[in-house]
Computed example of a mutant assay.
Amino acid sequence: MKIAIVGSGLVGQAWAIVFARGGHEVNMWDGDPAAVAHAQALITKQVADLHNAGLITDPAGLIARIQSVMTLEEALAGAQYAQESLPERLEMKKEIFAKMDALAAPSTVLASSTSSIPASAFTENLAGRGRCLIAHPVNPPYLVPVVEICGAPWTDAAVVQRTWDVMEGVGQKPVKIHKELKGFVLNRLQGALLREAFRLVENGYVDAEGLDVTVKEGLGLRWSFMGPFETIDLNAPDGLADYAHRFDEMYQAMSLEQTSTDHWSEDVIQKLEAQRRALLPKDKLLARRLWRDRRLMALAAHKKSAEE
């Protein structure tokens, strides 16, 4: 299958790796030719890291399946599936989907990586709106496999299924979102945790490092291989209902303090920024991101071996 990658930023690069690793031919395009050249260099490095981690066996073959092209027309020519990963701006989504709908073959699936904008917001007036949907990844998708698949009210059910099949075929873990909502499911869960994390720091209960340790050495250890419902199902003698009845009063009491919908205050943002920069200077961010990805590779290798 031929895949079109529209946008060569961090997410577009990662998608290119996902599809090429799955054996597909990939055409990658970006409105900025310099960005594509930069993306190819980063992809080469990421693929080398995957090989060193034992997660792929043919890095040269993978890279050979990713071709940079100069025009959107070239990217979409012969493509059965297109993954758009441009910045999170509604007008930009409307513009690129109108172009893709006009250029791509009628059977080509047009998917967006948007992390918050429903497909109905930028596909309603398209002639081919039935083949448009969201396939929202977690960054970087070549290491974090979940993909939220969410159609607009007019998306053809067969297109949703085709997208599911494409994602399963390249080793991703698709989740169907049954109806549109802003931010989909993953970011709403992340947002709830972040809102409480900001509140706890703002009110002086904990600092940035202590909060992160609580998650990475506590909740995160279980969440790396099971979700919150399975977690509570195993945390009471008789399962989920037993847990809910035991702890409902506690969670309800806490929720009374968690009802604010205010913006994050600039004071707490700057407080957290200062604490994070004390722990990690800004010029070390890229190195730490690469460290994160290597840790994710090690975790992926461990999970793969545990399933075999």
Rank of each mutant, 00 (worst) to 15 (best):
K179L: 11
R162S: 07
C150A: 14
T114P: 06
G220Y: 13
C150M: 14
E95P: 02
N203R: 15
D156C: 03
V138R: 06
L186C: 12
A111K: 12
C150I: 10
P174I: 04
P174W: 05
D212V: 05
E148L: 04
G191L: 15
P174F: 07
I96D: 03
E202L: 13
V147K: 00
A127H: 10
W223P: 05
E124D: 14
G210Y: 08
E180V: 10
K94M: 10
V213Y: 06
V144W: 08
A102W: 13
T155D: 03
I96W: 05
A135G: 12
S115A: 11
R199Y: 06
V144Y: 07
G218N: 00
A127L: 13
L211Q: 13
L194D: 01
M167W: 02
A102M: 12
V206L: 15
R188V: 05
L193F: 10
L189H: 00
T155M: 05
P153D: 04
H178T: 14
L211R: 12
P140Y: 13
G151W: 00
V109C: 09
R222K: 09
K99E: 10
K176R: 15
Q172M: 15
Q190T: 05
A104L: 06
V206N: 14
S113F: 07
G204E: 11
L219E: 10
A119Q: 01
Q161T: 01
L181F: 10
P118I: 12
K176V: 15
A119G: 04
L186S: 14
E217T: 13
A104I: 06
Q161N: 04
S115P: 06
L193C: 06
A192Y: 10
P141E: 12
P118T: 11
T108S: 06
W164S: 08
L219R: 10
H136N: 08
S120D: 03
L133M: 07
Q172R: 15
V213H: 01
W154C: 07
A157H: 05
V170I: 06
F97A: 01
